[in-house]
Amino acid sequence: MPTEVALLESHALRVERMGRVDALDKVKSLVMLPDGIHVRTDDVARYFEVSTEVIKKVTQRHRAEVEENGLRLLRGSELRIFHRDMVSLWGGEGSGSYPQAATQLTLYTRRTVLNVAMLLRDSDIARCVRTYLLDAEEDLRASIASLDQRVTRVEGCLVGVGSALQELGPVLSRMSHRLDVLDRKLDVTHQVVGAISLRLTDVSQDIVRLDARMDDFARHLKDLSRSRHS
């Protein structure tokens, strides 16, 4: 795990952690301009509880790096447009509530402020931000290691399951064969039951016909009896 000194000295290590802007608000609330995107040098100095000169010196020494991470210097028409937009966003508090730079304005994004936190040596707030970054990375490494261990245990269990399935293979094959035999026997049984059902249907029809003939015979006997008495 890299140390705080390594983070101060290594540009590559800072680049790796540049996306963790959430670290800023974990340590202290960063008050943004009305656009919710930018802060000024004074705002950055208040956040780190240092003078504006300290912030200016850090950005001057690492100008290329902080510009890569969002530092902007506004002048002329670009500055006037920015002020106009900020006054509009400031809303009901009035244009006089928003402080306007006379000739130029340096702007920082959250990413730029995080960059400064990884460069600024003489600030307790900056140290806290660096500590949070390093601790969060250590927690992530521990979580990954724990996950690796769980995956390893699961893989071990799966190896045992694979061996058990190999042993069950012949048993399952015999069971499958027996089930096939039972299916064939059931088919034959269904055929026999079907044939018996047909035979029973024929017998039922024969009984109906026999009942009809018995009725005819009974009527015939009645007719004979009447004729004898008459």
Rank of each mutant, 00 (worst) to 15 (best):
L71A: 06
D187Q: 07
Q100D: 10
L105I: 02
H83L: 00
R184P: 01
L24I: 08
G96S: 07
L114N: 01
S95G: 10
R153Y: 08
M32H: 02
L210P: 01
E167Y: 01
D22F: 09
R209I: 03
D42N: 03
V154H: 11
Q100A: 02
E93F: 10
H62A: 11
K28G: 05
L73Y: 05
T103L: 07
D187K: 02
Y47K: 00
D122W: 09
R184L: 08
G76T: 03
K222L: 08
S51E: 06
W90C: 05
G156H: 09
R213P: 03
C157S: 12
D202F: 10
A64S: 15
A6Q: 15
C128A: 12
D43T: 11
Q191N: 10
E53V: 13
D42I: 06
L186D: 01
L200S: 12
R174Y: 09
E67T: 06
A212R: 12
V171H: 04
E78M: 04
A45H: 02
R226D: 14
K56N: 15
R75A: 06
L140A: 15
L210D: 07
S176N: 12
E167Q: 10
Y98M: 00
E93L: 08
D183N: 12
S146D: 13
R141A: 13
L120H: 03
D124Y: 05
V5K: 07
Q149S: 14
R14C: 10
V5I: 09
L24R: 01
R20Y: 10
H11A: 14
D135H: 11
R75V: 14
D122Q: 09
R63W: 13
I207A: 08
N115F: 12
S143A: 15
K26N: 13
S163Q: 13
A195V: 03
L168A: 14
M1G: 15
V188D: 13
D187C: 04
H190Y: 03
L158I: 07
T41M: 04
S204T: 14
S143L: 12
Y47F: 15
A102K: 14
R141E: 15
S225W: 04
R72W: 02
V31M: 09
D216E: 14
R127A: 12
E138V: 06
P34L: 01
P34T: 04
D187N: 02
S173N: 05
S197W: 00
E53I: 09
D139I: 01
L7P: 04
K56Y: 04
D135G: 05
S227G: 08
D215G: 11
L182W: 02
D202H: 07
S88W: 05
V159W: 03
D215Q: 10
L24W: 05
L71C: 04
R111N: 03
S173Q: 11
P99H: 06
H229M: 06
V54P: 01
T152K: 14
R111Q: 15
V151S: 10
R17A: 05
L210C: 10
L79K: 01
V66R: 01
Q100P: 00
D122N: 11
R228K: 13
H83S: 01
S204D: 15
L168E: 09
M18S: 13
V44P: 04
T3S: 15
D124K: 12
G36C: 03
M32Y: 06
Q149L: 14
Y108E: 00
